[in-house]
Amino acid sequence: MSLTVSPELLEKAQQGPVDNEDFIACVRQSLPYAWSVVARVAEELAASGAAFADNQTEPPDEAARGQLLRLVGSDAMRAAVERHFGVRLAFQNCHRLALFNPAAVAEHEEFVTPRSQILNQRPELVNC
């Protein structure tokens, strides 16, 4: 299961649309490792003023790796996180999460190319 949904949030969803902040709170509580990575990289991006910032630290265990994969694998979660932090996400391998300033279109396009994916490969990441 990707998220741990409270009975109250489930009932709210059954009644109609869910507020983005309620959904973000559910993501933050359900995926604490993934949330901490996104929040840290968002702070780095804001502080640096660069086009993007990225995480290159491997997760400490498979549960943490799974959280990152669930976060980036869900269109709804990815979009909510992008709206919340005002960034654009990109992902390579099992842990390289990058957050882009929305104006950094060229940098984002380069990051998601096959060339960039190939250059980011290392033997230890084959089965991540």
Rank of each mutant, 00 (worst) to 15 (best):
M1R: 13
S2C: 02
S2T: 09
L3W: 08
P7E: 08
P7R: 07
K12F: 00
A13E: 10
A13W: 11
A13L: 08
Q15S: 14
G16K: 09
D19V: 03
I24T: 12
I24D: 06
A25T: 11
V27P: 09
V27C: 10
Q29R: 15
S30T: 04
S30F: 04
L31A: 09
L31H: 14
V38F: 11
A39P: 02
A39T: 07
R40M: 01
E43P: 03
S48D: 10
A51C: 07
D54K: 15
N55W: 04
E58Q: 12
P59R: 03
D61M: 06
D61C: 08
A64R: 10
R65N: 05
L69P: 01
L69W: 13
R70D: 10
D75V: 11
A76S: 11
M77R: 12
R78E: 02
V81P: 04
V81A: 10
V81S: 03
E82C: 02
E82N: 08
R83P: 00
F85N: 05
V87D: 04
Q92T: 04
Q92E: 08
R96E: 09
L99K: 14
L99R: 13
L99V: 07
N101I: 00
N101A: 14
P102H: 11
P102V: 00
A104V: 01
V105I: 13
A106H: 11
E109D: 15
F111H: 14
S116K: 13
I118H: 14
L119I: 00
R122C: 02
R122Q: 12
P123W: 11
V126K: 15
V126D: 13
C128A: 10
